[in-house]
């Protein structure tokens, strides 16, 4: 499933970047909708929607994580 793939890839990206983070899988529709995500799977970093409706490669997720970290 897409959501599991995204979860695994994000785990891998975090590990490769040596970022310590709490990664949670949210399946509650109310919470998902609260973030304004209309296409699953989505990735929310520090309360901000970073990915919605796609499963990027580990490399892309790393880029996204780094931009969020520097922001």
């Amino acid at each position: 499933m897409n959501c599991q793939t995204l979860f695994k890839r994000t785990e891998e990206a975090l590990r490769e970047l040596h970022i310590e983070a709490i990664l949670e899988k949210e399946t509650d529709f109310q919470k998902i909708a609260f973030y304004g995500i209309m296409r699953t799977p989505g990735l929310v970093i520090d309360e901000k929607v970073a990915i919605s409706g796609s499963v990027p490669t580990v490399e892309k997720i790393k880029d996204i994580l780094l931009t969020h970290q520097s922001a």
Binding site: F29, I32, I37, M38, T40
Partner: peptide, 17 residues
């Protein structure tokens, strides 16, 4: 528009909102 029935709920809520 990209759509998959698994996203029907978040999409429905997003539209209504």
């Amino acid at each position: 528009t990209p759509f998959c029935s698994c996203s029907a709920i978040p999409l429905f809520i997003g539209f209504v909102e």
